[in-house]
Design a binder for these strands. Structure first.
Lengths: 213, 213
DNA sequence: GATATAATGTGAATATATTCACATATACTA
DNA sequence: TAGTATATGTGAATATATTCACATTATATC
């Protein structure tokens, strides 16, 4: 388990998801090649990644799924549910608040926050609270992870406030890089950028196909 | 403009966004270091990337923003708006349908599709149409790009159908790798995975800080 | 106009990531 | 139980990506 860089860790979570899917299909054993196929990498990549994370199997026998998942869960952490808040309850924030995919990963959205008082719903199962209560909530409930889904113009300021209150990891949907100390983890989801690059490469492929004719 | 790999192209779009922001702030000239700071890379990375894309400036003088943007737009394409459809109008699909950030990038959502007939809204500005009309719509309107926001279990099948009808680029929100021919471009947005990796690295940082004490 | 300064542009050097290839161990077969 | 086939695990080799460093040249100054 050497330098655990982001790309490596991301792949390991992908492997785990794929292996869970295989388990639910009834499989008991897997080979590195099965995992590789499911995730779209080479089998030696899988074995090398496993090696770096001290995940071992049986020579000739592949990996016993239950054992492997147990070890992966130890390394990657799946012991307890993580409480997460959403800051900004516009379209994206609200969609994430209702997104069903987090639960099975042990991620629980515990509250939303919005500056628009008319959006406040204190009694909902997952309440939306006024923005003024954000810092206090983070401190009191010791929230460490937040989703940032506010308008671009407010994003940096809100991030600073969240970090100030104790947030240590942020998933940012504002389409720009936000500055932060290096002891804060920030992942960015930039939807416009994702589409733009798709459009670019579709154009390149079409260009190439045209040239081939 | 050699091997235009994804990571390089993505950075270039980021540079462009940052440069537009600087332009709107009233700047006329930029240096590689300004761009680097805005995007969070080194200045030599910026210059190297520019070099690969045949984007040049003036020695000692930096880059004239308007000239640079013109050249970037030629390389990266921003001549015409791109029509995009959304398949699956659940929480995420609907949020994307309403997302304001696409427009300024020349991306126009022209329709949503859903298997649930009760969601159909033919007369809306951006209509939601029944899933049965998807293939015909793609063919008739020559749609090339689609956002896939259907449940995990349906994703592969729907992707195949979209590609069959003529889609060449897909932004996939289902949390798994989908198989496709290599002349189809697929980008994945895996929200659970993003949060998981944040949680992982927050844990690592906390562990490290604990050990330091 | 001459000189000093500062930024680009890019090969070369370095760092990082992936793949190769094979010794090793284990499961299966007969 | 001996023999064979096959998958792992990992150093070494390769490929890819980033950074260095400096020659070059435009701008600013005097």
């Amino acid at each position: 388990m050497k330098k655990a860089n982001k790309i490596l860790v991301t792949r390991l979570y992908r492997y785990r998801d794929a292996i869970y899917r295989m388990k639910y299909m009834g499989l008991v054993k897997v080979f590195s090649e099965n995992i590789a196929d499911a995730v779209g990498v080479t089998s030696s990549q899988v074995r090398k990644d496993f090696s770096l994370f001290k995940l071992s199997g049986n020579k000739r026998g592949g990996y016993v799924i239950d054992d492997l998942l147990k070890k992966m869960n130890e390394s990657l952490g799946k012991n307890r549910t993580q409480d997460v808040i959403i800051v900004g309850c516009g379209h994206i924030g609200t969609a994430l608040k209702l997104y069903k995919g987090f639960e099975k990963k042990g991620i629980r959205i515990v509250a939303g926050f919005d500056i628009d008082e008319s959006k406040v719903t204190r009694d909902a199962k997952v309440p939306i609270l006024p923005f003024q209560e954000l810092s206090q909530f983070i401190k009191t409930k010791k929230i460490k992870i937040g989703i940032l889904a506010v308008p671009e113009t407010a994003a940096q300021q809100v991030l600073d406030q969240m970090v100030q209150a104790g947030i240590e990891g942020i998933l940012n949907f504002a389409p720009m890089r936000l500055s932060h100390q290096e002891n804060v983890v920030v992942n960015n989801v930039n939807l416009g950028l994702e589409l733009e690059t798709i459009i670019y490469f579709v154009g390149e492929i079409e260009k190439k196909q045209y040239e081939e004719k």
